[in-house]
Design a protein around this nucleic acid. Structure first.
Lengths: 340, 340
DNA sequence: TGCTAAAATGTAAACGTTTACATTTTAGTT
DNA sequence: AACTAAAATGTAAACGTTTACATTTTAGCA
């Protein structure tokens, strides 16, 4: 059957196309009688609206773009789940873009941002993958952006964001390690440039200073966020003359690599602290003590926020409170033992 | 600056809109001189094409829909990576839909499939989430579909697919366990309905029969594909009067739950075989012996296939060979020891 | 210089909606 | 019944492209 349009339906129902359209979009603006006729005609014609035409006409696609550092990381997939849950509710689809931490990403995303058919953007990526001025509306696009997980940098601070208190959380984790008697605590973190890394490192330093432990720069290793990166980091850490008694990884994913490397090299007594509390944290060996971020909730709230912004449109420059801080929590399992 | 259209560009360049359009789509059909003028005008007007209008006009969105059983599973995220890599190359975006294994999914997807603005569909979900007749073009939509990972059922066998030989792979895994001296081998698999499960179970049975081991139905447990599901399955398996000496999980994800449960209950000598070879397989404790599927490649090939189908359009009923079988391989690590 | 074929360009229609505005119908009031 | 306000409907324009077709320009050749 040839694709039928609103015109066919109108013809069959014996009304104008305007009535058909209204029947679909503002049913209360149309009489009971017409509504019935139209609905009947719709099934008779086997009509489904042409979404592309609708998008074109309305200037909206009901698609949101989500930029993520890594689809693989179970933490982010959980955030995406949260995003998706409210997206579904609001009849949104999401397109996920993996901002490979490489250099080209910036350009790429920027063009994508302009070209892609999305109503708004959620940035979960650590490093804002484009120059800050790109977000101002001068540069052509003026789509709402919400930042998730990540403390926003000063330049981007106009953008709304949803995240935990990264400094505080890292400090809490470090505090706990100190409390358990550790004083040579290593830090394995992500790329040096990322804000997230910066914040967590700041928390780590803060806790150390508060406890009067002098920081040993050798104990801070930054790699990428991968398992392999963490394995290398751990290896180099353990080959130090003065080894750490505990390793704080700023990601569960990295903690998994770390645990593995320690195990396979036979280091029994080194403690490991993770960050995120992904669903694997409970099944590592030993089960991972870590900092819980409410990933799903973060996802929900970022998407909710985005929807607000989209709904607001150009009408109001929505400048309410821009940072939404969600609570974190230390989850104690078995990977941290008493310090030597 | 107000959004500029092709008309503005035409005015500035002193040419017709047709020339501008051609300049963008068929640069070789336009003279050097005009091309220059137009390009200049484009930057002067700060013009970017309205994608929505283009989509509408062309009837294509350059978006593919990917239906996945679980975004969380690292195996599927790897497949998605492969999909994404060729998608990017072909200027496609992808929308990922998680087909929650629930019952409502079928209806949902079907309507989505019609309503969503996608040019084609990749089905990675185990159970075809809609009745087979929905894929025939009678039902209104006629978008290309490619199936990945999954053996296609008889009813859907017209659809092209990319996957390993699931029966053979499961048989290989079971063979290896038998070879190592196990004869009480349990099988922990996904939902009973799924084809993938059916195939792998068939391989398991096949290997057992070949070795002359009589199958004990008690040793086959099916749950969902989650870690928790596997934990429960393992628990019930180990509470059997006659315990298994090896457990074959049809997913690495489940194997992780299984390993954890065994460890935490203190069973040292039970072997575990996984399936997929996700990136976590190497860092479990002990590292997981498993069957490798070339996830990334499967992704690439499904997407490639989809692009072919989309390109072919209605022109040819593309009925070439429909099943693309990719190789699997046993990866031996440490989770399988000698049988008692 | 003509003439012709090819190349380049322009004109205008079409894609399927939504919606402002005008018109008609309905219902309510006197 | 006549009038009015509200509700329902219809008419037609608009959204920004692409593209078939018609027209003009260019270039090659005699």
């Amino acid at each position: 059957m040839a694709k039928s349009s609103i015109t066919d339906v109108a013809a069959i129902a014996g009304v104008s196309i305007a009535t058909v359209s209204r029947c679909l979009n503002n049913p209360d603006k149309v009489s009971e009688k017409s509504r019935l006729k139209v609905h009947e005609a719709i099934v008779k014609a086997n009509y489904t609206p042409n979404v592309l035409a609708q998008n074109f006409r309305k200037g909206r696609t009901n698609i949101a773009l989500v930029v993520i550092p890594s689809i693989g990381d179970p933490f982010f997939t959980e955030v995406v789940r949260g995003i998706r849950s409210v997206a579904e509710e609001k009849a949104y689809s999401i397109i996920i873009s993996e901002a490979q931490s490489g250099s080209e990403a910036g350009e790429d995303l920027l063009s994508m941002l302009a070209s892609k058919q999305t109503d708004g953007i959620i940035l979960l990526a650590s490093t804002p993958p484009f120059p800050p001025d790109a977000v101002t509306s001068e540069s052509g696009h003026n789509k709402p952006i919400v930042i998730g997980c990540e403390t926003v940098s000063a330049e981007l601070s106009v953008l709304p964001s949803v995240h935990i208190d990264n400094v505080g959380a890292a400090a809490d984790a470090t505090d706990y390690l100190i409390e358990r008697g550790h004083n040579r605590i290593a830090l394995v973190c992500g790329q040096a440039g990322s804000l997230l890394t910066k914040d967590r490192e700041a928390g780590y330093r803060l806790a150390l200073r508060k406890a009067g432990i002098t920081l040993d720069p050798e104990l801070i290793v930054s790699g990428d966020l991968s398992i392999e990166g963490a394995i290398h980091a751990t290896r180099s850490l353990m080959s130090l003359r003065h080894r750490p008694s505990a390793i704080f990884c700023t990601t569960d994913e990295m903690a998994m690599g770390c645990l593995h490397e320690l195990k396979s090299q036979g280091y029994q007594d080194v403690s490991v602290m993770g960050f995120d509390d992904t669903r694997y944290a409970a099944v590592t060996e030993p089960p991972l003590t870590t900092v819980r971020q409410p990933a799903y909730e973060i996802g929900e709230r970022t998407m909710l926020r985005l929807c607000e912004l989209i709904a607001a449109g150009d009408s109001v420059e929505y400048l309410g409170k821009t940072a939404d801080i969600v609570p974190h929590r230390l989850v104690i399992r078995n990977s941290v033992g008493p310090g030597s």
